[in-house]
């Protein structure tokens, strides 16, 4: 792995599989009486959130705390960030405090990249969502959830699995990160959306696209519904909410056309009745609550692999165990 996790494209297949396997070990911790590991004792993780987020922030916070790291939460509301401090000055402050990792969410696409490559901080930077660009740990937790459910019947990989990502692709950093990561892992991704909600240049992503949900989902192994991000919309992307849900919402009738093993996912927060109906969200196929649990395990894995050793684990590191490596 590189020193930062800024984009799902930074991960090689080897790195991504290492994260999934590590997350699998981290997940078993939830069944133990003491849900804590000593790996990051004495390390400081700063959660720097310029945008509101509840689940991502508490997920990172829980992950860092379970690895015994010290956590500092820094959110825009009620801090110097709302008083007009620049990203650079905030970064210098964090550096002076001795942060080992900065988890950043920012409304501007590319802010984590700027932070990582500006020379302002020496710490690892983890992108927790930047504008409409990327959200790599969400993609990793989605891939982990799919791998747990679909892997056992597919030789332990996602090779050739068909994943449908449905909804507001234009404003979705989750869709972009997922499209990149799932292809790295060998899955076939189809994006389904109204024509107005496809981003410019989607044809360069290497994924299939469709306007017709009913044609795509019977073949899918996993269906991921995206929230319509009305707070980012200031134009007429579709006539009415009702029309959107009829054409692109997942309801009981459409769910009945899925294959038996197909899982239904949603990165949250859901708008029940808009992109997904309550009966689907609460059905046996829905793994939406499990995604949250897996989110903590995946973020633990990422923090451990970035901060656990003298340098990040993965493709560039030396072999971990040689015969006779006893102590």
């Amino acid at each position: 792995m590189k020193r930062h996790l800024l984009s799902a494209a930074d991960l090689t297949r080897e790195d991504a599989e290492l994260v999934l396997q590590t997350a699998d070990e981290m997940r078993s911790l939830a069944d133990r009486p003491i849900k804590k590991l000593p790996a990051l004792r004495g390390r400081t993780v700063v959660n720097l959130f310029f945008e509101d987020s509840t689940r991502t922030r508490i997920s990172f916070e829980a992950a860092a705390k379970r690895l015994s790291a010290d956590v500092i939460n820094f959110s825009a509301k009620g801090s110097s960030l709302s008083k007009g401090e620049s990203l650079k000055d905030t970064a210098l402050t964090l550096e002076a405090m001795g942060a080992d990792a900065v988890v950043i969410r920012h409304g501007a696409s590319g802010a984590p990249h700027r932070l990582a490559h500006s020379g302002w901080v020496r710490s690892s930077v983890v992108n927790a969502g930047d504008g409409t660009h990327e959200h790599p740990t969400q993609a990793l937790l989605d891939a982990f959830t799919m791998w747990r459910h679909l892997g056992p019947r597919n030789g332990g990989t996602l090779d050739g699995q068909r994943i449908a990502i449905v909804g507001d692709v234009l404003h979705s950093r989750v869709a972009r990160s997922n499209a990149l990561l799932l292809q790295t892992l060998g899955a076939e991704v189809t994006l389904v959306s109204p024509p107005t909600l496809f981003p410019v240049g989607v044809e360069t992503w290497g994924v299939e696209t469709s306007y017709d949900l009913d044609a795509v989902i019977p073949k899918a192994d996993a269906v991921m519904m995206l929230r319509v991000q009305r707070e980012r919309m200031n134009g007429g992307f579709f006539p009415t909410a009702r029309e959107y849900s009829r054409r692109y919402g997942l309801d009981g009738r459409r769910m009945a056309t899925l294959q038996d093993h197909t899982i239904v996912m949603h990165p949250g927060p859901m708008v029940r009745g808009m992109e997904i109906t309550a009966d689907v969200a609460d059905s046996q196929r829905s793994v939406i609550v499990e995604q949250v649990t897996n989110g903590v395990a995946v973020r633990m894995a990422v923090l451990y692999l970035l901060l656990g050793g003298s340098e990040p684990a993965g493709s560039l590191a030396e072999p971990v165990e040689t015969p006779g490596d006893h102590s």
Partner: peptide
């Protein structure tokens, strides 16, 4: 010696 080497793979 966790800190002395790159992050090790978990078993």
């Amino acid at each position: 010696d966790l800190r002395l080497k790159p992050a090790r793979t978990l078993m």
